[in-house]
Amino acid sequence: MHIPDAFIPISQGIVYWIIALVFVALALRWARNELSEDKLPLVAVLAAGIFALQSFNLPVAMGTSGHLVGGALAAIVLGSPFAAIFILTMVLVVQGIMFGDGGITTMGANIINMGVVGGFVGFYSFKGLMKVTKSMAFSVFIAAWLACLIPALACAVEMYLAGTFPLNVGLIAMGLYHAVIGVIEAIVTVAAINLITNVRPDLMDTGARTAAGA
């Protein structure tokens, strides 16, 4: 769901950029204050992994492909939605500048959708589900699915405001495609979190996990 430059007027792109920068500033502050030094390698490895996963367009039928976003993954592993904003912003900068994947004037909107919306939806739905169900796998699965679907719907609304898509068709098509893509996102996120938990349980920072007896 990387929005190219052609899909949003520059004036609106600037508005999204300003909103995005507020969150990016908060994410930088998070990295400075909350990120412990022993977790820096994990953050960087996650960025590399999320970049690679995002380059993998998987077929989801209906003449459409989709790739993972990774916002829920970053937020859950590092225990903060700002982790998702921090990592996704840098991944989007590399993608936009080096590979033309996502525009420059639209980068703010992409940061808002995948980093901010994805990170917050992923993190807080995980926290809430964890409290209610106590199931790590189930909570991660649903959180990752939502963190793919909700940003897509946000993107559809932005496309409507930009005059690029009509609201109905945009919401239905974006919602349908990303509901399917989200299932893949959910499966891979559960697998990735299982892997990290097994290899380096000390790096996982979910309050819920510690409570579960890590």
């Binding site: 769901m1 990387h2 929005i3 899909f7 690679a52 380059s55 993998f56 367009n57 998987l58 077929p59 209906m62 003449g63 459409t64 492909s65 989709g66 790739h67 897509a152 993107c155 559809a156 496309m159 690029t164 898509f165 009509p166 068709v169 945009g170 098509a173 974006m174 495609y177 990303h178 893509i181």
Partner: peptide, 19 residues
Amino acid sequence: AVFLASGDPDGLESTALVV
């Protein structure tokens, strides 16, 4: 991904084609 990635448009591009 280089070898196996789908050549179909992604969700956003696909929606643009529908529109």
